[in-house]
Amino acid sequence: MDRRQVIRQFLIIGGGLAFMPSCVYKEGKLSIQLHTIQVTPSQEQVLKELADSIIPPTDSPGAAELGAHLFALKMVDDCMLKEEQEAFIAGLKQLPADLKDPASLLAAAEKNKQQDLVSFLSSFRRLVIQGYSQSEYVMTNLLPYQLVPGKYYGCVELNSTTSKS
């Protein structure tokens, strides 16, 4: 490894630990490492709030607490095609500062033909749903996933079916 780079990293880490209050430190850094898309820590914060307005905390955790917004970012970063990524980021930038409820936001974006915003909102909703539904918490506590389901019943009354994930 490059010696200067090591020293620089050392100073940054050391400096961070020494002088920055923990909340400010978090502000300056994304919670996950991204490889292709550029997202700022404040945008991450916005996505976190948006995730909770899509699936809010109730008597059980909401999407943000289960990390669904970070899962969404990871999927955009690793799996989305370049064009889809660009639309996602462009749409993200068009989010209004005062985040109202996402349903009326999407309706307005559709009405105003803001393609990127529409694309962003629908992709993000889909990915937040996936991240939430396929989180360990939900698949363990709310809709338990059975790794070893055992017997298959071909034809049963609908109301007797067990929940399947």
């Binding site: 298959y152 034809c155 609908l158």
Partner: peptide, 12 residues
């Protein structure tokens, strides 16, 4: 049809 029926249990 079979709106009131489903399969259940394992993933065959």
């Amino acid at each position: 049809g079979f709106a009131d029926k489903n399969s259940s249990g394992g993933r065959r």
